[in-house]
Design a protein around this nucleic acid. Structure first.
Length: 137
DNA sequence: GCCAACGTTGGC
DNA sequence: GCCAACGTTGGC
């Protein structure tokens, strides 16, 4: 089991919309580091859903329901899409500010590589954020 | 709206 | 294969 973090601007695609849709596919990634993370996701893996620009906080947890396949928005075979379903709301959203204040989380991809749209999350980081979000899996 | 960080591109 | 220029992302 691996853990991830996916970013979305709520303006484009929010957690609320995601819950309504019940399922979405993550496409349009055009960055090799993010692409590699998509490629490494396995069915059943969990990913934090992060709102960038507005909110700037982790609002929920999504689950990988379909592993990577050819990104339907391009003919280039280099790019992948992954399907997610909503898994759980965070009882309390965890803000970037709170994450930055927490020494055990300062090495997160989210903090170090702020521009990366799909980042890795370690087991320890995952547990810690669930705790901060008052959410149990 | 500004700016820092970083990835990508292209000239040499 | 280096590196400057440029574009994009995202926090503030």
């Amino acid at each position: 089991m691996n853990y991830w973090l996916i970013k979305s601007e709520p303006f484009k695609y929010s957690w609320e919309q995601f819950k309504k849709d019940k399922k979405t596919f993550w496409d349009g990634v055009r960055n090799y580091a993010a692409r590699n993370n998509l490629r490494d996701m396995k069915k059943g893996d969990l990913a934090f859903f992060y709102h960038s620009n507005e909110g700037v906080e982790i609002v929920g947890i999504a689950k990988v329901v379909k592993e990577h396949y050819q990104d339907p928005t391009t003919d280039e075979t280099a790019w992948f899409a992954v399907d997610f379903a909503p898994y759980k709301d965070l009882k309390k959203p965890v803000s970037l500010e709170a994450i930055k204040k927490e020494p055990s989380l300062e090495k997160m991809d989210l903090v170090r590589l702020s521009r990366l749209s799909v980042g890795k999350v370690t087991q320890a980081e995952f547990d810690k954020i669930c705790l901060m979000g008052e959410t149990t899996i």
